[in-house]
Design a protein around this nucleic acid. Structure first.
Lengths: 125, 125
DNA sequence: GGCATTGTCAACCATCTGGTTGTCAACTGC
DNA sequence: GCAGTTGACAACCAGATGGTTGACAATGCC
């Protein structure tokens, strides 16, 4: 089931147009029209791309009158990031540090965005 | 051009069969036949999957008589991993730490696998 | 109510993808 | 040299993907 989600995330990110949409949304939320504007492509096409990103869980949409502001979701990024990180390290033959690095990823994910001083003590849980 | 490479890497990883091949290769090099064995699929199909992984730069093949042992390459993992990590953090609204984390990824990539004590001092550059 | 704005849904089309089978090339070993 | 092993390449096929256009639903504004 994670497998299915991974497939959708990677497939969604395999398209350059969709990666540009992600990059734009990383700056801040935007409506479909705003997102479509820079592209030489119909609004419908962009809407379809957003649906793919949405199905992958990378993007969510609110409802604001006629508008549907899009928002980047971080959760599935974690999933893909961890998968990649695991095999990146193994490909380097340095999987001995895997546990520590994955723990750090989790730490970065779970910790509230309060201080930047979470690096030296770091709760072990 | 990095865009093209990213597209190929993500597209390659979007298929569950190919992710399993990567997982298997992370354990160690293997021939096409060895890789195909666990799959309910023709050798040619697996060979095609390996070609996709090869075109993406994720896997390389040596030549050993009739065999072509496959090897996992780490370089493009870096590329994809950094892309993901950047937007993962931005999606979390914590891009203020982006520079530090990307530097850390580079550190993990470049540093020889010698010590595990690279974490508390952490160069600021 | 009626019109403009914003975006989705449906149908259609060309191309890509993931599998198949068949053939062939490269190499080993008898 | 001939047979067996390992694997790639080509042709083919069904289904997915990425784009188009046209219709329409939902909402705000006059």
């Amino acid at each position: 089931m994670d497998d299915e989600r991974l497939s959708r995330v990677f497939a969604a990110l395999a398209d350059p147009t969709r990666r540009e949409l992600v990059a734009r949304l990383a700056v801040g939320d935007a409506t479909v029209g705003e997102l479509a504007e820079p592209f030489d492509m119909s609004l419908q096409a962009v809407s379809k791309h957003l649906k793919v990103l949405g199905d992958a869980g990378l993007v969510s949409q609110r409802r604001d009158a006629q508008r549907r502001p899009c928002h980047l979701e971080s959760e599935v990024f974690d999933l893909a990031s961890k998968w990649l990180e695991r095999y990146r390290l193994q490909a380097e033959g340095r999987y001995q540090r895997l546990d520590r690095v994955l723990a750090e990823l989790v730490d970065q994910t779970d910790a509230a965005p309060r201080s930047a001083a979470r690096n030296q003590g770091a709760q072990a849980s």
